[in-house]
Design a protein around this nucleic acid. Structure first.
Lengths: 243, 243
DNA sequence: CGAAAACTTGATTAGCATCAAACCAGGTGG
DNA sequence: CCACCTGGTTTGATGCTAATCAAGTTTTCG
């Protein structure tokens, strides 16, 4: 990957000062959940909020990792360019997920991370994390927990979404999408091309699978990119493909 | 997974006292590489060496994580039982890799980790790591580096081994196997069944792909489970499938 | 309104799963 | 020693799934 790809942001990013981490809506899920009030206040000053539109990168492969990010809302995808030259989506992440942890070991970012929906993230500069971690052993534990969660999610992706028939992979993807919607009625439904890059299917196959699930009432499409999922029917369909 | 599967070790494990981490052959790659001599000596006393035969588990899914392990030699596989009830191998690891890091956040082990070849590991109890980490910030960094390496390897597996035709996946698997052989002439060649569970292929398909690569001179089988790889021909074959 | 992008649908083909059978070690016991 | 078994592997024949090729249709947006 050439330097240009990450040195020029695709869209100007508009950071705004955080209102304060103490009052954050996702504080209980966030990296700083374990910090005492005093430290939290200090941390807030260096944290900025960023809002991204679908397609905007959080960061790109190879860029020097200057910060980590906490997802406050929305869904992002981790993607890589394969040796064969194609794009492969290797993971999705949603609310509460920590992105770009490799920055903390001073490694360049290892993937492209792109907003799938409108996304709000908190940008936390590396030095702030390092500084707080020195005084707070709890924070080190929080970091490791998140690393564990990321690895587990990645293994899960390989085991469940990269195996089996087109139908079963699509059904398991729906499971993940429901999970990521945090209990909301509306679920983000990726484009057919995105689905293909997640499940290693041809675009036409994704389309046919979605069409079938729609006819079966598992998916009810509202507008493009938004749907509701009939959870009961999803369970039943999953049962069948698994025996 | 039932409790029995991990509470009864499949084979008695014979730990022997470590000769001393300071003189370890893989010290430069190992977790404690950054520790000063004084701390290292202290650490050695709690570390035990374990030798495993092919098929022996290092640990099993769901077991309480009481220790981490450094691979001194040999190759291990990470596997999961999928929702559909099948086995899926989600990653391989070799010399220098840290296993079972989830123990450090007091999580149960998240995968089955099984020896593929004869394997030597160092078993390091969780309390030892925690104790040393308090005094050595370097160790925390080492831990994060290893977590980063694991996540990167997992993403790589998804991007390169879980995509494309049977042939290209098999070729990329060979690449990984060469990598894991640490420059030695002899390469571990998995059984056809193992290959199938790594690449999501039928056993017969794995067999046919191996047969073809053997006829092309990419693989030269010696005894079962051991082969040499013609690196030049491997490169050429990879070029072709990727355009 | 026109062009481009995303999605859908149909027809055909290629690749892989599946079914079935043979083959070949290494080991066991007569 | 040989007959027999077992588990891993190979090989062949067949059918199904999903890729590919090829139009269409709908949506988006300048």
């Amino acid at each position: 990957m050439s330097l240009e790809t990450w040195s020029i942001p695709l869209r100007p990013v508009l950071p705004e000062q955080a209102a304060g981490c103490g009052s954050c809506l996702v504080r209980s899920q966030a990296l700083f959940s374990a910090l005492p009030e005093a430290h939290l206040e200090q941390a807030s000053s260096s944290v900025s909020h960023v809002t991204l539109e679908p397609g905007d990168p959080v960061y790109l492969y190879g860029a020097p990792g200057a910060a980590v990010f906490t997802v406050r809302s929305g869904i992002v995808r981790f993607e890589r360019v394969t040796a064969a030259g194609g794009r492969r989506i290797v993971r999705l992440a949603g609310q509460g997920t920590l992105l770009g942890q490799e920055a903390l070991v001073r490694s360049p970012y290892a993937d492209d991370v792109i907003a799938c929906t409108r996304v709000e993230v908190c940008r936390i500069p590396r030095p702030s994390v390092e500084h707080l971690a020195q005084k707070n052993p709890h924070l080190v534990r929080e970091l490791m927990l998140r690393w564990h969660a990321a690895l587990d999610a990645s293994h899960h992706w390989t085991a469940e979404l990269a195996c089996g028939s087109a139908r079963s992979r699509m059904l398991r993807l729906l499971e993940v999408l429901v999970q990521l919607s945090c209990g909301r009625e509306h679920v983000w439904l990726p484009s057919r091309l995105e689905m293909s890059d997640m499940l290693d299917l041809a675009e036409e196959t994704s389309s046919r699978q979605v069409a079938r699930l729609r006819s079966e009432g598992v998916i009810r499409s509202l507008r493009p990119g938004v749907a509701t999922i009939d959870n009961l029917k999803l369970r039943q369909a999953l049962q069948k493909v698994q025996g």
